[in-house]
């Protein structure tokens, strides 16, 4: 296998990765040099989804340890607000109190966690919640018969009122100075999605509850996680080692994800020629499907760029993904700072 010394690649063969040990990140291949890191690190934002909740960017020139630290922090250490306590005054629906409370806890909130403090003394039931660390919500829904129900209709949505309880039925209520601090409270602090089904009811049943939301992190409970997913993958690289033409080109194209291989048509001496070319390896799934065909096996070299991370952050919605990544970096920095101070206090 030819190997260019200046270009590092993780090589994907039919069975396994022959040079995996080189990139295991266990041995130190090079001395640490911050200036060099500065030179090598590149970040390029690739795309943001229409709704602004998904962000894809390239993190180039850093170690997997760092990329993984940011990913782990995004998942479990960047804070958000979520409902932590549910005070049930009345619940005559079929769903049990504790199950209902759990479902309510999982509802995503719109509130920006950076505006609030962590709860000062968790576990203290007696103390009044402070407007600095707690958001209060109320839900009061009663299911009734619909007096204007169309005749002969048997559909629950026609004959009952409030038979479905949605997250939009939960309303924010200000405490302390919150009413003046957040004049647009409901849009700023309310439910992120209005159409999440919380429970179903029948006439005569009622739910009346108060809720307290606090700031927390995903490590404590997944409901506090600000992202649905945060992942990274290495940039794939595909090289054709010899020309692939005609029927084989078509077959080769089908071995990869759509858009990875293109077929170039050219006319030479009146005969139409089709040749496969690598168009864009970025979104290849690296399925290694080519290796299933004996006659295509030796035409390609599949590999990945070991220090090019395609990072995808999918926010739940309280904060935009770009802000979340910056928060994650800040949290790693705070960790370092804390422990530098700890060293100072030991010595």
């Amino acid at each position: 296998m030819e190997k260019n010394s200046s270009v590092h690649r993780v090589i994907l063969e039919e069975y396994g990765v022959p040079n995996a040990a080189e990139y295991s990140n266990l041995q130190a291949n090079e001395l640490w040099n911050f200036e060099k890191f500065k030179e090598n690190l590149k970040i390029r934002v690739v795309k943001e989804s229409q709704d602004g909740r998904e962000l894809e960017f390239d993190l180039i020139g850093c170690s997997a340890a760092l990329a993984n630290a940011f990913r782990r922090i995004l998942l479990s250490e960047v804070p958000t607000m979520a409902i932590e306590k549910v005070f049930i005054l009345n619940n005559t629906s079929l769903i049990q109190d504790e199950v209902l409370a759990h479902r309510i806890g999982l509802l995503p909130l719109r509130a920006d966690p950076r505006l609030f403090e962590y709860p000062s003394n968790p576990g203290n039931e007696e103390e009044e919640p402070s407007d600095q660390d707690t958001l209060r919500y109320e839900m009061k829904v009663t299911c009734t018969w619909n007096p204007q129900a169309p005749k002969d209709s048997r559909r629950p949505d026609d004959i009952y009122r409030n038979n479905n309880v949605y997250s939009r039925d939960i309303k924010w209520t200000p405490i302390g100075r919150q009413a003046e601090l957040y004049p647009k409270g409901e849009e700023q602090l309310g439910m992120l999605e209005g159409d999440i089904l919380v429970c179903k009811m029948r006439p005569g049943q009622e739910i009346h509850a108060f809720m307290h939301a606090v700031k927390g992190i995903g490590k404590d409970h997944a409901k506090f996680s600000p992202v649905s997913t945060a992942t990274y993958r290495l940039l794939p690289d595909i090289k054709l080692t010899r020309p692939v033409k005609g029927e084989m080109a078509e077959l080769l194209k089908n071995c990869f994800s759509p858009g990875v291989i293109e077929i170039v048509k050219n006319k030479k001496n009146g005969i139409e020629n089709r040749e496969a070319k690598v168009k864009d390896p970025r979104y290849d799934s690296c399925s290694r499907n080519v290796f299933r065909y004996e006659d295509l096996k030796d035409c390609v070299q599949l590999s990945r760029v070991p220090d090019h991370f395609i990072f995808t952050v999918e926010s739940v919605g309280a904060l935009p993904p770009s802000a979340l990544f910056l928060e994650a970096v800040k949290i790693l920095k705070t960790k370092c700072k804390t422990f530098i101070e700890e060293i100072d206090s030991i010595e």
Partner: peptide
Amino acid sequence: VLRKGLEDLEKVCDHTSKTFEAAW
């Protein structure tokens, strides 16, 4: 050495933040 490591990691974070902000 531990202190130096933490300080370097802190610098790495600062630089990552700056680079990301510029890219954004």
